[in-house]
Design a protein around this nucleic acid. Structure first.
Length: 109
DNA sequence: TGGTTGACTAAGT
DNA sequence: CACTTAGCCAACC
């Protein structure tokens, strides 16, 4: 199987390792991939993750805001998935974000 | 090849 | 608090 060495595939592999009930940020994934300034690329990769088996709903911005929810089928789907995993979301923001935060730099190093 | 794009982030107004 | 500017960089056309 030809694995695309593209940036997207790397993002997908990290995203797939996010444990249930945990979330991370675009910047954290980017930093893990060696592009601290590449948070936007991660978000863009998520945009293309539609066909991939990637839990994009576990990736939020640095403040714990569900900035990407507008890209899901429904604006409530992303929050629904997170709450289904035990992550409380209020007003598009993850509550107790620090507690749910999963850092690939610490977990995958 | 080069300009446009974007689910980010930080700092400024 | 809402909006703007600026930096960042791979993928896309």
């Amino acid at each position: 199987m030809l694995k695309e060495d593209s940036f997207f595939e790397r993002v997908y592999e990290v995203a797939r390792q996010i444990p249930e009930g945990k979330v991370t940020s675009y910047g954290a994934i980017a930093a893990y991939l060696g592009m601290a300034k590449g948070a936007r690329m991660v978000g863009w990769a998520m945009n293309a993750s539609g066909a991939a088996n990637v839990p994009a709903h576990r990736v939020v911005n640095k403040k714990g805001l569900l900035t990407g929810k507008h890209h899901f089928e429904g604006v409530n789907l992303m929050q629904q998935l997170l709450e289904n995993e035990g992550v409380k979301v209020v007003d598009n923001q993850i509550q107790n974000f620090a507690k749910y935060f999963w850092d690939p730099l610490e977990s995958l190093k």
